[in-house]
Design a protein around this nucleic acid. Sequence first.
DNA 1: ACAAACTCTATCGTACTACTAGACATTTAC
DNA 2: GTAAATGTCTAGTAGTACGATAGAGTTTGT
Lengths: 149, 149
Amino acid sequence: MKLSKKSDYALRAMIYLSMNYQKGAVQIKEISAKERIPQKFLENILLTLRKVGILNSKMGLKGGYALARSPDLITLGDVIRALDGTIAPVDCVSQMSYRKCSEEITCAIRGVMLDVRNAVTEVLDAMTFADMCKRTKELIENSALTYSI
Amino acid sequence: MKLSKKSDYALRAMIYLSMNYQKGAVQIKEISAKERIPQKFLENILLTLRKVGILNSKMGLKGGYALARSPDLITLGDVIRALDGTIAPVDCVSQMSYRKCSEEITCAIRGVMLDVRNAVTEVLDAMTFADMCKRTKELIENSALTYSI
DNA sequence: ACAAACTCTATCGTACTACTAGACATTTAC
DNA sequence: GTAAATGTCTAGTAGTACGATAGAGTTTGT
């Protein structure tokens, strides 16, 4: 039931990009330094997010990454699914990678896991990066610390 | 976000033991055969559940395992925590294995993951093995198949 | 005594996770 | 048009966790 480091980093990077949404392309190096994420690892993550259409990139000098759409149109669920593949606790209740389990008809566990998946996705698919920005800003104000996720 | 095979097997074994609650000790061999769980693997699982007080065991001839208390007093959460150690998606929101994350004060991700953990535990801690028995029996009646999870 | 059961420790192979290396392609600035 | 700064891509690697197994020990009923 654990969030992978990959998804964790992805969420942090996405929040960073959301906080800088109007500033145009942001370089990997900057995100990597500010969020303390291994740069090469982050490259792969951002590349994945670009391939699924969550990010846009610009190559060459002055290049970088930016959100492909407004932060209020991207949810945490979108990002986690892109990286971890699925959110469901067992494949037989997964939308992403559904696989019939052998005794589906009489499997009471399936029913509960369906409830779990729905509970989780309700949280993650309702939470946008616009929300995350708002929360982050509130946290900064309340703690009076400089911004560093 | 995946339920481990270990927990999956544990849940199946626990349902089996719950369905046979009044029959006294049930042998590993029987559970292993009926639920198609590798016997040696199941041994470890049941041993763990005994150590945390969910199961009682009886050694020697005519020995076996039985629930340590009534099925309506054991939840799925109890079992999953015993085996997977924690339910929380990140350690900084875990009751079981809490670890402060470096930027706790300004970490908006933490807030969401707390919501996720609460959503999951609400489902798993509310669901008892008495409920699971009821559900299983309903599923059997509706499908008119012999009982095999 | 002996067989049938649980107990315990150790191990093993595989897959996955977290991360790194390095060559390549593209763009801007001069 | 060349150099420098960026993203792109394909491999790879070390460590760890997961799923499963082995085997020797302990307890109990008959």
